[in-house]
Simulated assay, not measured.
Amino acid sequence: MDYSRQDLLDAYRRAGVCEGKVVYVTGNFGRLGRYESKDKATLFQDHFDVLMELLGETGTLVVPTHSFKLVNTDEPFDPHLTPSETGPFSDFIRQQDMACRQFHPFSSSTAIGAQAQEICGGKSRHVYGAGTPFDAMVKRDALFLALGKEARNSVSLVHHVELAAAVPYRYVKEFMKPVVRQEAVQVEPFYLHVLYRDMEVERDRNVTIMASFEQQHELHKVPLGRSFIESFSMSQFYDHVLQLMIENPFIWLRKEPQTKPFQK
């Protein structure tokens, strides 16, 4: 055994999970090592129970529940049945009775708790930008939690900032997609903020961004099992990285692209 339920409680509390907080959880649970129970269902249930215990009646848990395999297919998206591709814990959360899943066929978030509907029940057809779960979480100063790996490797919030900063190497693309609404299949438009296809892109993997953020803001790193939890304020990250991208719109990249399909 590498960690127990009590270890979970202590680590999540030290990482900043507390009464009334909105918490966004992602990462790799397998890297935490062996849990006190070998049963996967018990493992996920205990993580969930501990988080909700700390969040209390006024807190909210949010997880990514992507389904990118549906891009460019005719398979309908059903928010109640389409599985999450973002790890088994996120799919466990998606299947809970009180879960509210964002209605987006490719890159949804799912929430449980007091503000679940306000965060994931909106009508935006975008993943990032006004009226999306990421917009709602930033406004509520949600806590970003990365389990089992460095936050820089899973901080999709950076793409929400890219849209706000209007970075030139991305554009909004429309996808006409069959979805299930009220038990009927219909085709509707949805949007992704995508990279230009004919462009050399070398990702920086958020190394520069996170190094700059850590110089001015607190990044908690809490041991858990064989690995750790990293956590930080989503609103602080948004404000900090937005200024970075305004000053240098290519900071997410290792270097500015030589081929610029966005340039006339």
Score class of each variant (00 low, 15 high):
Asp135Arg: 08
Ala130Asn: 14
Glu118His: 12
Ser90Tyr: 01
Phe134Tyr: 12
Leu61Lys: 02
Asn72Thr: 03
Ser67Tyr: 11
Pro83Asn: 07
Gly113Gln: 03
Met137Tyr: 10
Ala111Leu: 11
Pro64Gly: 03
Ala99Val: 01
Thr65Glu: 10
Gly56Met: 03
Gln117Ser: 10
Glu85Arg: 05
Val71Asp: 04
Gln102Thr: 09
His80Phe: 03
Glu75Cys: 08
Arg101Tyr: 06
Gln95Met: 11
Phe92Ala: 02
Arg101Phe: 05
Leu61Gln: 06
Gln117Asp: 14
Phe89Ile: 06
Glu118Ala: 15
Phe103Ser: 02
Ala114Ile: 02
Leu54Glu: 05
Ile93Tyr: 08
Ile93Phe: 04
Phe106Cys: 08
Ile93Met: 07
Thr82Phe: 00
Ile112Thr: 00
Phe103Ala: 06
Ala116His: 01
Gln95Trp: 02
Glu57Ala: 10
Asn72His: 10
His126Thr: 09
Phe77Asp: 07
Thr58Pro: 08
Leu55Ile: 01
Arg125Lys: 15
Gly87Asn: 03
Ser67Ile: 15
Pro64Asn: 02
Ala116Met: 08
Ile119Asp: 05
Asp78Trp: 05
Gln102His: 12
Ile119Arg: 04
Pro133His: 07
Ile112Ala: 01
Arg94Phe: 01
Leu70Phe: 09
Asp74Thr: 15
Ala130Gln: 14
Asp91Thr: 00
Cys100Gln: 05
Asp135Gly: 08
Cys120Gln: 07
Val127Arg: 09
Ala130Trp: 10
Gln102Ile: 05
Asp91Gly: 02
Thr60Arg: 00
Phe77Glu: 08
Met98Ala: 02
Phe134Arg: 14
Gly59Ala: 09
Thr110Asp: 11
Asp91Ala: 04
Ala136Trp: 04
Ser107Met: 15
